[in-house]
């Protein structure tokens, strides 16, 4: 079920593309895939964001130029702009295409292998620390 009205969603997408443009090999917000569905998903999990998001989006004029609207919002309603940014960037960085480009598979399972253990002993990385000896004060020692 859609969480945002059409006008608010249009405003979110407009501001979202200003905050997250196509650059440096990354797609803009609205080209990242089905961001509408992901925004709805974000708001279903973070319902407390909805009111603030709606209020901020209602401040965006339908005919207003996108970059100017974002600048004005950031100046006049920084909390509102921050909420838009949080919702847009949360959705963006969960998009499969964005993660693919970044080489990020999420917080994946990668249990350690034997090769990774004690490599600092095998190649001598830890040896200087061992060679320097104790560095603690022991008020109760012998």
């Amino acid at each position: 079920m859609s969480t945002l009205s059409d006008s608010r969603r249009a405003a979110l997408n407009t501001i979202g593309d200003v905050l997250i443009p196509a650059a440096l090999g990354m797609p803009c917000f609205t080209d990242a895939g089905d961001v509408d569905a992901m925004v709805d998903h974000v708001l279903s999990l973070r319902r407390e964001l909805t009111d603030g998001l709606n209020q901020a989006l209602d401040r965006v004029g339908a005919e207003e130029e996108a970059a100017a609207a974002a600048e004005r919002l950031n100046r006049d309603d920084p909390d509102g702009l921050a909420t838009i940014g949080l919702v847009a960037s949360s959705a963006y960085y969960m998009m499969p295409e964005v993660r693919r480009i970044m080489g990020y598979r999420g917080q994946e399972q990668r249990p350690a292998t034997a090769d990774e253990e004690h490599d600092y002993m095998r190649d001598g990385l830890l040896q200087p620390v061992i060679d320097r000896g104790p560095i603690f004060r022991d008020p109760d020692g012998d």
Partner: peptide, 21 residues
């Protein structure tokens, strides 16, 4: 994601736009 929400009020170009990437 980090803490994007913490950037509200900073100059827009500092935290967003091409600088976000």
């Amino acid at each position: 994601l980090g803490m994007r929400s913490a950037y509200g009020g900073a100059p827009l170009e500092e935290a967003w736009g091409e600088n976000l990437h």
